[in-house]
Design a protein around this nucleic acid. Sequence first.
DNA 1: GCCCCTGTTTGACAAATATCAAGCGCAAAA
DNA 2: TTTTGCGCTTGATATTTGTCAAACAGGGGC
Lengths: 241, 241
Amino acid sequence: MTRFEEIRSLPLFAGIGDEAFAALTRGAYVQNFPPAVDLINEGETADFLYIVASGSVELYAGWNGRETSVAFLRPYDTFILAATIKNAPYLMSARTMTKSRLIMIPSENVRSIFETDTEFARAIVSELAKCYRASVRNLKNEKLRTAVERLANYIVKHYRREGEDGHFDLPVEKRKLAARLGMTPENLSRAFSALKNHGVEVEGSRITIREPERLIAFAKPDPLIDKEETRESPRAPSGIA
Amino acid sequence: MTRFEEIRSLPLFAGIGDEAFAALTRGAYVQNFPPAVDLINEGETADFLYIVASGSVELYAGWNGRETSVAFLRPYDTFILAATIKNAPYLMSARTMTKSRLIMIPSENVRSIFETDTEFARAIVSELAKCYRASVRNLKNEKLRTAVERLANYIVKHYRREGEDGHFDLPVEKRKLAARLGMTPENLSRAFSALKNHGVEVEGSRITIREPERLIAFAKPDPLIDKEETRESPRAPSGIA
DNA sequence: GCCCCTGTTTGACAAATATCAAGCGCAAAA
DNA sequence: TTTTGCGCTTGATATTTGTCAAACAGGGGC
């Protein structure tokens, strides 16, 4: 029994042995953070692999005075895995969005247990592939869709996730959502207005989908862009012999 | 000695044993393709891992009648690694750009050798991390920069790669470059014009950088967006004790 | 050498998105 | 309750990017 019991059963660790898990968490931290705390900055080198145990974390990046959000993370997402593995500088910064509990595992441990534990190696690869594919989806979303279309698909995704009873609350400030969707807050405001014509109503952070069919007809969600992937790699295609 | 001698020394295979390499290439193909041949389509499932042995390949994706280029590959890039590992559908399509020779390794082999060969596992992870990071750079480039800025940085990158003697030839059609940089051909044309004010001259596919300092001052290249990464993961930070 | 095809450029215009400034509204602090 | 602050919205406008159509240019086949 360790401080890290809560992550022991995560897909990333479920398959590995007790000694390997102990070695992995040696020198690891569990730490609580208030909202809006900077965790890492792009350009720094990767000393830890992070796991979100509770709360939420924003990955973002900047250039030439501009800034954009790349991802919103929830339990039990990991971040900075690629930089950890390559022992390379972070490409993104991270900050807490809400009060959060994070688990920090020394990069060195990740690299060395990777060598000795095949199950862990497989889990790492699967997690990495998941992150990579998420990034490709993100890129397609950005390059192939307009701002209104991105918002429409964001709403469809949450509509499906949070029960399809026709409404949900935005989990983040609108300004952050705007950055995540690659637009300005003003433009997001107008995009919400535009979606009134497609059966969406907004009141503060409460989103009501009056006519799901119309919204979906407009958004044209595509599994190759919008589907959320699990970390677990299927050993065989499900459903097909 | 096998048909696959030419890839035996690639970083991806260099560290693995002869038997493992033989097992990996069992059932593999080397195949020549003319230009503009469709290789795979997004949504299909991954039967092979591809390696570009010669020529060049375009990764692209479409949605709702639109299409965009995601990457241009050269020897000895791999593609579709993440889908191979997760046994999941491709998120991108691929076609040859020029006459190309491709090596195709059955996904099943990749997955099974991954289990038994630690060196191969490490190489796979490193390759995957490289692709992931490239995708993040791609996304930052797209979200943080205007069309003209993306073009300027593209030129700076090639200026540095192809010898800094002040000129180089575009390796692809302008229409494809436009798609890669996330704009229309017409807009690319105008972006080239705009760069005349920053020391760049264009004549057909010949790019001449008259005033590199001015171009670079405008482009503001950033290693966290524009640097090209090697697949090899450093075992320790170089230069620092 | 000439023609045709295709890719590129240019121009005029429209749509999408950003910017700047002001006003609004709600919630926390006084 | 009132005030204040901050995030959000709205309006006016500028910039960026896309669309459509036409002109242009160069290379391959005849």
